[in-house]
């Protein structure tokens, strides 16, 4: 029978949970190998960052939804962490194949990369749970009035939208199990960033544009047709 919005949301939540059951809360053996292959092993920083970002997330989730729902926040964060490690491994495998490189020291020691990747994983989890709030239906334990939808996660992690934007396409490429609705949601996040958020005063986009401008035009403008 055709699915009601609630049934569809419940199914995608169940699918996400089943899907991530096999993924661990810690870096996998393959990830540990990538970390060891780095000039500077990022393992300790990765685990410390996860710990500190988890505290931030729990606190803000509790503030937004209510202190009695901190357990819900922990559930969501756990799913987010599993997806974060899984997508990271998948990304590194494809980069290894594309670049014939095993040492990803610079990337894996880049805090912005990790924070953006975790934020994107959490946004997928929140969108999967929060789907009902867009339909205004109370089915995931969170009242529709609490808006945890994008760009809430950027504010929690104090992450620049432009940095979040950088991981979206690679995230979708690396995680074939994403549902059509979630891919569409991430695409909407891209539009939202490019149309407005990335142009806010404190965005790193301006610095990038300034650098590009100083470097001068890379390509000559095409001559006008006579």
């Amino acid at each position: 029978p055709p699915q009601t919005p609630v049934r569809a949301a419940m199914n995608s939540i169940a699918q996400l949970r089943v899907d991530l059951t096999a993924s661990g809360d810690q870096p996998s053996a393959n990830l540990a190998v990538y970390f060891k292959n780095c000039t500077v092993d990022p393992t300790k920083e990765v685990l410390q960052r996860v710990e500190s970002l988890s505290q931030l997330f729990f606190q803000r989730f509790g503030q937004a939804v209510g202190p009695r729902c901190v357990g819900l926040g922990k559930q969501r964060f756990t799913l987010g962490i599993r997806l974060y490690y899984r997508v990271m491994e998948s990304m590194l495998k494809s980069e290894e194949k594309r670049l014939s490189v095993q040492n990803f020291s610079k990337l894996l020691n880049d805090s912005t990369f990790h924070t953006s990747l975790l934020a994107c994983a959490l946004e997928v989890v929140m969108a999967t749970y929060g789907g009902s709030s867009t339909t205004g239906v109370y089915s995931n334990g969170v009242s529709p009035e609490t808006d945890l939808s994008f760009p809430w996660i950027l504010d929690v992690f104090q992450l620049a939208a432009f940095d979040f934007y950088k991981v979206i396409e690679s995230f979708i490429k690396a995680e074939p199990n994403l549902t059509k609705d979630i891919v569409k949601h991430l695409e909407r996040c891209e539009y939202q960033i490019m149309e407005s958020i990335a142009w806010r005063g404190d965005s790193p986009l301006f610095e990038l544009l300034r650098q590009t401008h100083e470097d001068g035009p890379v390509e000559q403008a095409e001559p006008t047709a006579t």
Partner: peptide
């Protein structure tokens, strides 16, 4: 099953986007 518009070129990936190439 989705119709996401991939925009990165073959020679571009997450390493380039984070200036780690």
């Amino acid at each position: 099953s989705h119709d996401y518009h991939f925009g990165l070129e073959d020679h571009e990936g997450i390493s380039e986007l984070f200036d780690c190439d």
